[in-house]
Nucleic acid binder design. Structure first.
Lengths: 211, 211
DNA sequence: AACACGTTCAAATGATAGTTTGAAACTGTA
DNA sequence: TACAGTTTCAAACTATCATTTGAACGTGTT
């Protein structure tokens, strides 16, 4: 009776809901997706969300956490690999940071996570704050240490600021395709912007910013 | 009967609603403010919004437009003043761009506009797109021309990219006070971040990014 | 006074949202 | 087969929202 399900592990239904949530949230944003849309797209009953997750918000946070965890793992792995080599360069560090967002095959997860992070900046909740401090902050410290190696001239304080500005730039510039349309209207001769162009421009921008 | 009011000019009620909207939207975001909250905070009747603006969305866009217009005017004025002098420096251009957001006395309008712009990046509407292309794009072109003067080494395409990244960095880093809290947790010894610190760090970051 | 017009008001309307319910269906166990 | 626990389902519930309505109010004009 009314037994609370704190964290369901594996279930066909749960997987389908998370998959549907990622797809729909990426396209419309989670506040514009009703549970009825979500569950009918997933092929499950409306009540399934509350049964398996407890509430819509907890489902949203589960998706957010999954995504953040994935990106943090990618980054930390890449960073460790770089640090096993003997010479660390600024470009390598920046690329490893940007790649999970704008790298090949990562476009969708990057855009979705960017939306979440922007959303979290505007309207944070206890749950999203928890995810940030649990996953993002530890990764941030490792990256700041790496930047300290390749930018020895910058003070600790400067490094932290620039790191934060970098994350904001990356997230804001990866969310949605507004940027491409804006580019076209500001520079019609440049033509349409491919995702690769954006990534390379972003990397150049960030490398400059850390010098 | 049912006469549509395309653009009300001056009215005690209209002014009170816009003022209340700016205050409440800045604090909670416009999707978290109901018309009942807004109108009771403004001291007017619920129906006044639809009577004077046509819908909630049109009120939101009116506030957005007012704000964008104000910031664009400030920037264009500052830029013209700079260009009347004989030597234009990168730092001056950047400062004139950042100032309407993080300058003294502009904190509230900066934070509010930043929220709107972030919101617009996530969920644009026809109305917000119109404001962007009508006010922001012309100003952007003037600024890109100014950056071209002080950064002669950068190609037109590079200038446009960096300009866009700059606006994203500024908006994302001005929305809300998350950044300060994040800084504290990443660099406890730095202590609390004043707004001035943020502005100076931001300016250094952007100057670097354009070199 | 009588009228017309713009404005304000309390109340109703209609739609949509997340959530809850209780019975049915399904699962594996004895 | 009978039973217990879990999961699914259609339907109802509760709340909130933007919007509309039609009467009341105020004001200036004739």
């Amino acid at each position: 009776m009314g037994m609370q399900r704190p964290a369901d592990q594996n279930s066909e239904t749960v997987d389908r809901m998370i998959k549907a949530a990622e797809e729909l949230f990426a396209e419309y944003g989670h506040e514009n997706v009703s549970l009825r849309q979500l569950t009918s797209h997933a092929g499950v009953n409306v009540a399934a969300v509350n049964y398996h997750f407890g509430s819509k918000e907890l489902l949203v946070e589960a998706v957010f956490q999954t995504l953040v965890q994935r990106v943090c793992d990618q980054r930390e792995l890449a960073l460790e690999k770089l640090e096993r080599g003997d010479t660390l360069t600024l470009e390598e560090v920046v690329r490893s940071f940007v790649d999970p967002y704008l790298g090949n095959g990562n476009e969708k997860q990057g855009a979705l996570l960017a939306r979440f992070l922007m959303r979290n900046r505007l309207y944070p909740t206890d749950g999203t704050r928890r995810v940030v401090s649990e996953y993002l902050d530890p990764m941030a410290k490792k990256y700041i240490a790496a930047f300290a190696q390749v930018c020895p001239k910058l003070s600790k304080e400067q490094l932290v600021w620039r790191y934060l500005f970098m994350t904001n730039t990356l997230a804001a510039s990866s969310a949605g395709d507004n940027l491409s349309r804006r580019l076209e209207s500001l520079s019609p001769d440049t033509g349409k912007a491919e995702l690769q162009d954006r990534r390379e421009a972003m990397i150049e921008f960030l490398i400059s910013a850390f010098r």
